[in-house]
Amino acid sequence: MKIAVFLLCFLFYESLWAGDFSTEVKNVSMELVADHYQLNADIIYRISPIAREALQKGVSLTWAVVIKTEEQGVLWNSTIKKLSLSYQIQNHALLNIYSVKHLNSGEKEVFSSLAGALNSMSKIRGLDILDKQRIKPENSYHVAIKAVFKHEALPVPLRPFSYFDSQWALSSSHWTLWPLQN
């Protein structure tokens, strides 16, 4: 019994020590521009020490920002549109730069610092998410945003253990919802 209590305390302490490295979605706003809803949001990426070390050692890290437009139902919501913006960040030790690759478009940007690279990934500005024509005035809609860390993009030996390590829990802990005004 005492051992179990000790283990629980230890695990609790471990989780506190490990900290929260989940990605956060902030400053969400919606604009209606030329009958299109455009999304603005800031994604705050928090990189744990282990993830930072992995990045420094050349391991590329990948996130996908998933944006869903959902129609609210009585029992469940139905997704009417889903977008996914994938980013991959990688360190180049020789050139001492960080490259950010937009996996959707294939575009690549380089930054002289990690903060600059993360900053470029964090800004979502004027993203066209939905045509107003698809909105029914009588229904309610919302936009759900979540940043998902892609464990499967990690090197194979790291992959299975990353699922059980809080240092690799870099995804958003929840969906951030934002109502869509008709």
């Binding site: 070390e53 992995a54 420094q56 050692k57 050349g58 391991v59 360190n91 180049h92 030790a93 020789l94 050139l95 090197p155 194979v156 030996p157 790291l158 299975p160 253990f161």
Partner: peptide, 28 residues
């Protein structure tokens, strides 16, 4: 040349970093 050196170094660094994970992975 820079790309080649960078690639090789990154691979080596990555392998060094994954040393423990690699052992665990093989053990698993």
């Amino acid at each position: 040349l820079a790309d080649s050196i960078d690639f090789a170094f990154v691979r080596y660094q990555e392998t060094t970093f994954l040393r423990g994970s690699l052992k665990s992975s093989f053990l698993l």
